[in-house]
């Protein structure tokens, strides 16, 4: 199976370079249809005391509609004539943007999104990435505007036996099959080394059934697992990380591949997460 439909979340304006690069690469590779989505919500409707003047909301809606139109125009401007089927859907409304994106991406095999750009109020008007990952039922490929670009060269799977990681692994099969090199890494305490080796070799066998050759690595836990994982990823010069994700308290804390880390707040390469 491969990825036939890619959805992009273009809601945050000005952070789409990584999304568009990844989309072009994947659309070309999989001959996929591209569905561009953008949802914006008036902030005043969320962060008000309930007595905000209707006029203010109307003004803000107008501003957001303009912003949406600009995003739409920019999307069409970069589409190469003759490229595979492309579609645009946008919305300015009061529904949480993440749930709108998750619904409209119903036909997508993967959703490509930018990492959240700081600011709590901004978060309210745009898609909350953690909410999107939780609601989508689809893998979300987080593509930063700067840093290592998606190249389908080296993928690192941060393995931890949770339903989320299993999901991430099945969800990423088309991606892993397209990558030249796949490393599955797990971090286990000293007493659990043997079990971790057994577990990870099962994963290697499962991947092999799908024609994915992988390298397996068990790391000993030293306390700072997030940093250890980050080092491995940097040493491998991976261009994409695959992990299961739990999100807690609105992106302030993520559990990724079993370790709490802030990769996703400021990633320097693509991360594919599933919940």
């Amino acid at each position: 199976m491969s990825w036939r439909t890619l959805a992009l979340d273009l809601s945050p304006s000005g952070h789409s370079a990584g999304i568009l690069q990844a989309t072009d690469l994947l659309a070309d590779r999989f001959d996929a249809t591209v569905l561009a989505l953008a949802a914006l919500r008036p902030v005043n409707s969320v962060a008000s005391d309930g007595y905000t003047a209707g006029e203010l909301i109307a003004l803000e809606r107008e501003k957001l509609t303009d912003q949406l139109n600009e995003t739409q125009a920019a999307f069409w401007a970069q589409v190469v004539p003759g490229s595979p089927h492309r579609e645009w859907r946008g919305c300015v409304g009061f529904e949480p943007p993440a749930s709108w994106i998750a619904r409209e991406a119903r036909g997508a095999d993967v959703i490509i999104a930018a990492p959240p750009a700081g600011g709590i109020l901004r978060g309210a008007s745009q898609v909350n990435l953690a909410d999107l990952v939780m609601a989508a039922g689809r893998p979300v490929l987080i593509a930063p505007a700067e840093g290592r670009a998606l190249a389908l060269a080296t993928a690192v799977v941060a393995w931890k036996d949770t339903p989320e990681t299993r999901r991430a692994l099945s969800d990423s099969l088309p991606l892993l099959r397209a990558c030249e090199r796949v490393l599955v890494v797990t971090i286990a305490p000293r007493s659990g080394q043997e079990a971790a080796h057994a577990e990870i070799s099962q994963i290697g066998d499962w991947l092999a059934r799908y024609g994915v050759a992988s390298e397996l690595q068990v790391e000993r836990a030293h306390g700072d697992d997030a940093n250890r994982l980050a080092t491995i990823i940097a040493d491998m010069d991976a261009d994409v990380i695959v992990a299961g994700a739990y999100g807690r308290s609105r992106m302030r804390e993520w559990i990724l591949g079993g370790v709490t880390c802030d990769f996703l707040l400021n990633p320097d390469r693509c991360v594919l997460v599933s919940h």
Partner: peptide
Amino acid sequence: TIAREAAPETRVESRREPDGYAA
């Protein structure tokens, strides 16, 4: 898609196209 995935740049190991459940 199948034709694309079997293209020469693809590694030998990934040429198999499992179309379903492997286990």
